[in-house]
Amino acid sequence: MAKNLDVIEQTTNELTLAERQQKKPKRKKKKLKAVWMYTLLSIFLVVSIFPFYWMFIGATNDSSKMFTNPPTLLPGDQFMTNLTNLNESIGIFRVLFNSLFVSGLYVVIALAVCASAAYVLAKYNFKGKKFIFTAFLLSMMIPYQATLIPLFQMMSDFNLLNTYFAVIAPQLCFPFAIFLLRQNFLAFPTELMESARLDGASETRIFISIVIPSMRPALAAASIFLFMTQWNNFMWPLVVLNTNDMYTFPVALSSLMGLSYIDYGQVMMGVTLATVPIIAFFLTLQKQFISGMLGSALK
């Protein structure tokens, strides 16, 4: 709880600072409104991050502290013990590397695949365009549980089980990313493309040197979704990966969930570690992400 109090105190300080910049007559009303705003936001803040705080508490305490009543709400001293145990159970660095490698490669390739498709869907007229786009969108409606078995069968027929290719291939063409990027490409001024054409630039060149650079925000938005998808992907990697050294983070974490033996300290340490990279990724790209979403939603 101490942490949340800090946050509230901090926001109140900010509040007075903001207030000082206001002109006097409006001050009282504005101040009241600001109090309202911060109260509302603080409530949501506590609700949103409390489970994360608790996750961290779990990571620094012994497994037996997970279920005490009243609940343990202060960090303990088992941080290193849990970290060491977790590392012994699943090999943190290896699975972290695997996950970063798989997610990173996936984002790069999927972005290339989706962006080029989205671009032509937005900016060119060709036969079957509408059909292709609709088909992409419709495919989002199929529950994944239904396609799991045929996909698995296919991967095993091609002898691709236990490869990262099998992990990422099915989702390289990611309809949601195509949709999001297409909406952004629609906004790109066609005149710019025309004038480049008159200057003799090839279509590929227009795409790579003129369109792409101006689409950074949209690409950032798409990569956040792609990264999130792959980083948290569980069921499919579980099914196709067959050795512990190939495991990605969520699959490795799940291997801690035995029948009657669960070391919650380790599990919470694991989920804390698994959350960090994705927050970092979001923080890095969030500014562009916001404007990228902007492009997609309003068109």
Partner: peptide, 16 residues
């Protein structure tokens, strides 16, 4: 330009 997406789509989405 759309070929990679379409091929992947056919293989890993349409077929299943």
């Amino acid at each position: 330009f759309a070929a990679p997406a379409i091929l992947l789509f056919l293989a890993f989405t349409v077929y299943p």
